[in-house]
Design a protein around this nucleic acid. Structure first.
Lengths: 213, 213
DNA sequence: TTGCAAATGTGAGGATTACTCATGTTTGTG
DNA sequence: CACAAACATGAGTAATCCTCACATTTGCAA
């Protein structure tokens, strides 16, 4: 897992490989760098985050930063990856044991609420996923993450509707998941009341599709 | 309309006001600048577009560029605004005379196809709307545009379901529209086959919501 | 026509910022 | 304890957005 933070290769367009921290000291320093970046993103957004500022706040030199992260985006990517890892575990747990329509309805509804709450409460998460579309590496990460999450949903659907075309179920699950993320991004960029309404409407639409009328 | 191209104020965060071209000569030059920008975006994407390159290709100096556009984003914004204006006219026309469920089904289905085709065929449009989330001014423009388009859809729904809660219809129309845009963005970032499937699934879901089972 | 103010045109240079690299320091290990 | 590999440093490089002082052109009133 620590390897993936550093790899930063991401896509195949930029970013040269960097050293992975192997000593205790450097591992701690990398953590400080990520914490500093996280704080700065929370304060000003990832776009306004300056590499020099990250280094200063982490108490390291600019050179050390680039020792472990190939470029600025890799730092954001590393933070994003932690969120996705956390999220996936949560989603897998919520959907693993669903075996009937009512269970799916409850689990899905709860998941949406949790995610919406996270988006509202976590400025870093909000910033990263809002800017997702701009960065190819992040878009890729989100796509992979979304597919993985949709996979859990697909598994449930296959259990509930064994007669249905598996490919169609996969498409449906993936689309619903992506729409959920789009709805979140939308909801946090409008007023709170309207955001709540939109999330509720999404939930209703998605459930109609997932468990029928 | 020419005023809006230049205003560039957009959001309230950056961009100082610039002069609007009042002479024939400068209007033509502004057109050349936009054409050059458009070509460069088509070739390399708006992110890689360099202001110096735009000026060179338009046959003007870098200073002239900044005479009419407060900053780089304003150029992209000006192009985006043209697309939205064109789109709105098209959408308004397609939905204006819809008066029954079957008509809505046909019109909506056709609109989705047209938009998907545009996204596939127009690299500039694709680039601009893909990067929408990154730029606050563009996000705002998309939001305003989306609300306007959703308005047409809302009008149709109110005609078809006069008994329904108007606020709920508005939310539904807006959400469906935003999901459509999200689906387009998604569809063009995966393979062609999967993209087609996703758009088809979206169409089915949206229509279920719009005209019922 | 002519004079002049406003509009327009120019491009060298300022300012910012991501990122490099030559050099020095620390750590683990035979 | 020697020594290679890992780590740390920060002044400097490069790229790029944007400004500004000054030159030119245009439209128009006298």
């Amino acid at each position: 897992m620590e390897g993936s933070i550093v790899s930063g290769s991401q896509d195949g367009q930029i970013a040269s490989p960097r050293r992975a921290p192997s000593q205790q000291r450097s591992r701690e320093r990398v953590e400080r760098m990520l914490a500093a970046a996280s704080a700065l993103i929370a304060e000003q957004g990832s776009d306004a985050m300056r590499m020099g500022e990250v280094a200063e706040r982490a108490g390291v030199s600019i050179g050390s930063l680039y020792q472990f992260f190939p470029d600025k985006r890799a730092i954001v990517w590393a933070l994003a990856e932690r969120y996705t890892a956390e999220g996936q575990a949560c989603i897998a747990a919520a959907l693993a044991e669903v075996s009937d329509a009512e269970g799916l309805r409850r689990a899905f509804s709860e998941l949406v609420d949790i995610y919406y709450g996270l988006f509202l409460a976590e400025p870093v998460m909000r910033d990263i996923w809002s800017g997702t579309q701009a960065d190819k590496a992040l878009r890729e990460l989100e796509l992979v993450d979304s597919r993985a999450n949709a996979e859990f949903l697909t598994a449930v659907l296959k259990r509930l509707r064994p007669a249905a075309d598996p490919a169609a179920l996969e498409t449906t699950a993936f689309l619903i998941w992506q729409m959920g993320e789009a709805t979140m991004r939308l909801a946090i960029s409008v007023g709170r009341q309207e955001g709540d309404d939109l999330v509720a409407a999404y939930k209703r639409m998605a459930l109609r599709e997932l468990v029928g009328e």
